[in-house]
């Protein structure tokens, strides 16, 4: 169960737990939550079912633990610094894109679980959107009136949601391998800049 080379039993336990979560995330993302068995997860990790049950009482409990992984792509740590510029805007877009590109399977799983009525997954989605919304609004408020900042925040979030979901869905399981990430990134930056119209705003 715990690897013999680990210096303390506690670390071995944490390591097994982490490996279970990684294997489960992979399997839930490809096979779906319902179609994945505890046995499959255990064998992917190379442990017995019984050993897995030592860490998690149920498949549902594994899923709940997966949702505890951080989910905002670091956007929440970004604070406004002077007047909002296109370069700062690109930075926010990149953080959001990197996150969706790096967590495709988890995000698909989350959306599917929400559609199947999972309240934990929904709460997590709402929370990660609130972080993104706050960050964008705070940046826009450095140069915009409240109402305009509100509209632009909503428009940019909708665009990021739509364009990343559509790109991921269209590419299917081969995302992001079969997507030209550079083109995708350039296009998204350009579109978000067009929505934010920061240059327009300075001119007025």
């Amino acid at each position: 169960m715990s690897s013999p080379s680990s210096s303390s039993p506690g670390r071995g336990r944490d390591d097994t737990r982490r490996r279970i979560l990684e294997a489960a995330r992979e399997l839930f993302g490809t096979e779906g939550f319902d179609c994945t068995t505890v046995r499959q997860i255990a064998s992917a990790v190379g442990i017995t079912d019984a050993a897995l049950y030592y860490h998690f009482k149920s498949k549902r409990e594994i899923l709940t633990a997966i949702w505890d992984l951080p989910l905002d792509g670091g956007v929440g740590r970004r604070r406004p610094d002077g007047a909002f510029s296109n370069e700062q805007l690109d930075g926010l877009v990149d953080a959001s894109l990197d996150f969706t590109i790096g967590n495709d399977r988890l995000l698909r799983l989350m959306a599917r679980e929400i559609l199947a009525g999972d309240q934990t997954a929904l709460a997590l989605r709402l929370q990660s959107r609130a972080v993104m919304r706050r960050a964008l609004r705070a940046h826009l408020l450095t140069t915009h009136e409240a109402e305009e900042a509100e509209i632009k925040t909503e428009a940019i979030i909708a665009l990021l949601t739509g364009t990343s979901m559509k790109t991921q869905l269209s590419a299917g399981p081969s995302f992001p391998a079969d997507v030209d990430v550079r083109v995708y990134r350039e296009r998204t930056r350009r579109w978000v800049r067009a929505l934010a119209r920061l240059d327009d705003h300075e001119a007025c």
Binding site: A158, L159, T161, G162, T163, K166
Partner: peptide
């Protein structure tokens, strides 16, 4: 179109 999809999916 992507923005409208985003509003709907969200």
């Amino acid at each position: 179109y992507d923005m409208m999809c985003g509003i709907f999916w969200d």
